[in-house]
Amino acid sequence: MKRALNFNAGPAALPEAVLAKAEKDMMNYRGIGMGVMELSHRSKEFEEINDHTKNLLRNLLTIPDEYEILFLQGGASLQFSMVPMNLLEEGSTASYVLTGTWSEKALKEAQKVGNAVVAASSKNANYRSIPNTSEIYIPAESSYLHITTNNTIYGTQWHSIPERLQVPLIADMSSDILSRPINISSYGLIYAGAQKNLGLSGVTVVIIHKDLLNSSKPSLPSMLNYQVHAASKSLYNTPPTLSIYFLMLVLQWAEELGGVKKLEQLNKQKAALLYDAIDSSGGFYTGHSEEKSRSLMNVTFTLDNDLLTSAFIHEAEESGFIGLAGHRSVGGCRASIYNAVPLEHVEKLADFINRFRSRN
């Protein structure tokens, strides 16, 4: 079967090796006569999957023992509410750095829970850059500072995070987790929907410092309480078993590939190919993000007019490229080059970008 050249923003490409392994397990997982999605979440087989997946993630990201790993549901969008519900103390403030649509939505949900303010923003410049850390103002009464490390719509990414904070740093890493090494100890809590770099939609990874679990209020509904999920090892209710299994396979694939450092090397190589094609086009293509803030995960660019843009996307689709239309709020084009997008696919796209320019 001919595979598409998949540059979708999410749900996104999966490693072919992962899909091939999953195909074998769909009907008969480890010879037990059932598909993996039929396993009871209380069975020893699924308990092994759950535990092994957490251990893989802990090893790949070098997560210290003082952090709890949770597998939850509801996507990053539910974390927009769970974070302030659990961590925003009464009479305190939550501080948010706005770098795009998703951080805006996170702030909006936090404001439904309590007092939440903008600590810094690049909105006036149409989110073309990440604010300097010196621009961030955190009120003294803040419970935490929230950032979105990669902005899929605008193609920007944090390349240095706020350090030596007096409050916990909370990060939405949905679109760049596992793409590069990070110092987990710099964060109080990290959350990420799986459907971009980790696997299937349906499971959300939360990495939380155990000290912050004490902030969860007993009055919270159980399903919205981090302490409840930590105490039950993410098995308080029926978890998204198939998504957790796929997460395990993706983490195994990443480990076999050479780990996060190898993935970062490949991601830089892939991004350089596309940014070089844009920068050397003599203005035929224009990158949306400022160079110092460019994302290694989502390359966004525009052409001179809507007619050219439509022609580019149409010809790209005819050549097998999928998912290159930009988000409706920005327009233009976007190539999402997450971990699972092979280098050779990006090479083909860079070649297409150059050939389209030559023809037009």
Score class of each variant (00 low, 15 high):
246 F>Y: 14
246 F>R: 03
246 F>L: 12
247 L>I: 09
247 L>G: 04
249 L>M: 11
250 V>L: 13
253 W>T: 07
253 W>I: 04
254 A>C: 11
254 A>S: 12
254 A>T: 10
254 A>M: 14
255 E>N: 09
255 E>R: 09
256 E>N: 11
257 L>A: 12
257 L>W: 04
257 L>S: 06
258 G>R: 10
258 G>H: 13
258 G>A: 12
259 G>T: 14
262 K>T: 05
263 L>K: 00
263 L>M: 09
263 L>I: 07
263 L>W: 02
264 E>D: 07
266 L>Y: 01
266 L>S: 03
266 L>Q: 07
267 N>G: 04
267 N>P: 06
268 K>A: 04
268 K>M: 09
270 K>V: 01
270 K>H: 05
270 K>A: 02
273 L>D: 02
274 L>F: 04
274 L>I: 01
274 L>N: 02
275 Y>I: 03
275 Y>N: 07
276 D>N: 15
276 D>I: 03
278 I>G: 03
278 I>V: 15
278 I>L: 08
279 D>Q: 09
279 D>V: 06
279 D>S: 00
280 S>L: 11
280 S>D: 08
281 S>C: 02
282 G>R: 02
282 G>C: 13
283 G>F: 12
284 F>C: 01
285 Y>C: 01
285 Y>P: 04
286 T>C: 12
286 T>Y: 11
286 T>F: 09
287 G>Y: 09
288 H>C: 11
288 H>Q: 12
290 E>M: 15
291 E>A: 15
291 E>F: 10
292 K>R: 15
292 K>I: 12
293 S>G: 15
293 S>L: 10
294 R>L: 02
294 R>E: 06
296 L>A: 11
297 M>G: 05
297 M>E: 12
298 N>E: 15
299 V>R: 01
300 T>G: 04
300 T>K: 05
300 T>V: 12
301 F>L: 05
301 F>T: 00
304 D>Y: 10
305 N>S: 13
306 D>K: 06
307 L>A: 12
308 L>P: 01
310 S>C: 14
